[in-house]
Amino acid sequence: MFDARLRPLIDKPLNAVARRLSGSGITPNIITGFGFVIGVLAAVALAFRLDHIALGLILLSRIMDGLDGAVARHAAPRSRHPGAKSQESDLGGYYDIVADFLFYSGIILAFAVGRPDHALMAAFLIFCFVGTGSSFLAYAIIAAKTGQNHEKQGKKSFYYLTGITEGSETIFVLVLICLYPEWFPQIAAVFGTLCLITTAGRVMQARRDFG
């Protein structure tokens, strides 16, 4: 919901760093992999209830998640396709989305490992993540098939469908979980419900656009 509004603020510093990294040999896929490893370390920290360490690693991981795309747009092309103007690629977009979904669900799983008394609500939240993720990706597949494009959140490797619960909101929730772990059931209940509303909205959007 807030991604489109935050994108201009986020892009400026990311693009500045990306320009400095351009030509350094650091590829977008390297940054994606590094960010994913940091995310795994964040999950491990959360499993051991090192909440503030986990918070710092989560934020660093999400910075890497934004930086890989910025570097892809600024770095010299390595594509095998003639006429390529950047390092943006379908494979890079694939790596990015897989890493994102493993990261988000992994953080919630790690929280449940560290606090088994909250496992039921963690399972509910992961279930809700599956709803938003599947509705998002399924729409993207059909949109790509029909030649649709949407760049309000910036140039993407796939069709980016908006909703109530997007990346910014999810990161905010992960921050809340680290700062106030005792409130996890309430946070999970509210955000999970919003995820289900987002899923329902995307299903209705698909019905209007593809029906």
Rank of each mutant, 00 (worst) to 15 (best):
S61E: 06
A140Q: 12
A143Q: 12
R80S: 12
I171V: 15
T146W: 04
D209E: 14
T193Y: 08
R7E: 14
V44K: 06
A18S: 00
L137K: 09
D68P: 12
R20T: 00
G66V: 00
K85H: 06
L102P: 05
A72E: 10
C178W: 06
G93D: 07
M1Q: 12
A200F: 14
G35T: 06
F127D: 09
A138S: 13
D90T: 14
A42Q: 03
E166F: 11
T32G: 05
L109A: 13
M64S: 15
R49A: 12
A75P: 05
F184S: 09
F34D: 02
A119N: 07
Y159C: 10
D209F: 00
I126F: 07
Y159F: 15
M121R: 05
A200C: 13
A72N: 11
V130P: 04
D100N: 07
K85R: 12
E166P: 15
V44W: 06
G35K: 08
A138H: 09
G192S: 08
D68C: 03
R62I: 10
F191H: 10
L46K: 02
F136E: 01
G35L: 07
I97C: 01
R62F: 07
T199F: 09
I126T: 04
T32L: 03
V37C: 08
F124W: 14
P116Q: 02
F2C: 02
V37K: 04
S86H: 03
W183I: 02
S135V: 05
G56A: 07
R19W: 00
A54D: 05
P185S: 01
G56W: 11
T132A: 06
A76S: 10
V130T: 07
I197L: 15
P82C: 01
I126A: 00
H150Q: 14
L46G: 03
A70Y: 00
G163E: 10
V190E: 05
S61K: 07
H81V: 15
L109D: 02
G163P: 12
R73G: 00
A122M: 07
F210W: 11
A122T: 10
I30K: 06
Q205S: 14
A84K: 06
P82G: 03
R5L: 15
A43T: 11
A84S: 13
L46P: 06
G154T: 01
S157R: 06
E182Q: 10
V173F: 06
I97A: 14
A42H: 09
I108R: 07
Y139W: 12
L41D: 05
D3I: 02
F111H: 13
